[in-house]
Write a protein that binds this DNA or RNA. Structure first.
Lengths: 220, 220
DNA sequence: ACGTTTATTTTGACTAATCAAAATAACTAA
DNA sequence: TTAGTTATTTTGATTAGTCAAAATAAACGT
């Protein structure tokens, strides 16, 4: 069995490679895992020996089919656990990522399946992140963001790509939850500011950086 | 934070001391934790340094108030998780101990509280084992067993004290679940056999060892 | 093309948890 | 007592995962 450390390495590789094809740098992985780069190099070599990744020295690392399989299973556990914590235990939207971080390594595939059934086989977690299927299919659709979308076009929020509690609290406080309708009324590259409006509500100003973490699709 | 290894050491000390006062031997602990005795000695000294236990060299070990607090919290998590797995996820009675072994170290106190509420604050887990209260109270009532009870007296099964899947499957298969009514019709010390009868059913023969793991109280 | 910055890898050391096997202490039976 | 059994402790090694800091390689700018 993969240790939870191994599972974390693989999961973050999957998240950082946006689908699994590109090489992930040691630096990015070190950052994501909150360890020093040397540790990642060492670990990645071990993961290459165990067949979970392919390591190109000085270039980066990529998941093998087997590594991807493991990573998708962990991600599925993480996101289904988040659904459970929010939908069943009514926990705070912004706090569940931390909880799921622990639980994703502790639940068995058996529990996973039953949780999935209990929740009605959801397709996304409470933040809008797609849940990998049992068979390892992950919706990798590319969405526009409030930083890149067409101005004045009616939109629907589909996903928030920053799981930090602070950001999620901000999002919730301003009613920018997945499913909500909005449109961007103004975008100023120079100042780095985006103005958005909900159908009913006062205009809301946010930075380009923040706007880029809110994924949208055309309304309806 | 206590690592899950530490939590396991403390939990097993609590279980082996039947309430917390007697000294637990290194050998018993090694057996329960499936490690060699030398490992336990080393670990127990570390736990003494961190204030979780009091170590009497060559005699045994005992939980301190703090160690007991931690152990009770872990046990509470274990047993509430078992309730959840059986009552909500409808998992197999005999399989949940293994699952809970992992989950008890991964769920936060916050999740614990919500799980407790969701389940309606149960007092025992599916095997009849008492769940420590939030405040750390643990029902330590001493029950008779099918090996020690009065013959022919009507009884109610309250608890099964062997969590191995094999034994639990045997118990389930013979309808000796907690809550069921039985009486012992015959007990033969020489042959080591006990004969029990459910209100409606054929007589059931089991060994004294097995009978001793089934706790009962007077019916009604 | 040359020196500088930046990313990566290597090296040596550390911690937590473990085992195997030797040493020690305690108990037990003649 | 004294030898023998049994439980415990000690010692030395091992594995997984980590860090700090030095060494190396690649990329970048002029």
């Amino acid at each position: 069995m993969a240790t939870s450390t191994v599972e974390n390495y693989l999961k973050h590789m999957l998240l950082l490679s946006e689908g699994g094809e590109e090489l992930v740098s040691m630096g990015a992985l070190a950052e994501a895992l909150a360890v020093v780069p040397g540790t990642v190099t060492t670990m990645v070599k071990a993961l290459a020996d165990s067949g979970h990744v392919e390591h190109r020295p000085r270039q980066g690392v990529r998941l093998t089919a087997e590594g991807r399989r493991v990573a998708l299973n962990v991600l599925r556990k993480h996101r289904l656990v988040e659904c459970f914590l929010v939908n069943v235990l009514k926990m705070d939207w912004a706090a569940v990522d931390t909880e799921a971080e622990q639980l994703e390594h502790a639940i068995s595939d058996e529990v996973l399946d039953r949780l999935d059934a209990l929740l009605g086989h959801p397709e996304t977690d409470p933040h809008g992140d797609p849940i990998p299927s049992r068979q390892g299919k992950l919706d990798s659709q590319v969405y526009a963001t409030l930083a890149t979308c067409v101005v004045e076009k009616p939109l629907r929020i589909v996903r928030i790509t920053d799981q930090s509690a602070e950001f999620l609290q901000f999002v919730e406080h301003n009613g920018l939850l997945p499913g909500e309708s909005v449109r961007v009324t103004e975008r100023n590259l120079a100042s780095g500011l985006v103005t958005a409006k909900k159908t009913a509500g006062r205009p809301l100003v946010l930075s380009l950086a923040a706007a880029g973490k809110i994924l949208v699709q055309p309304a309806r």
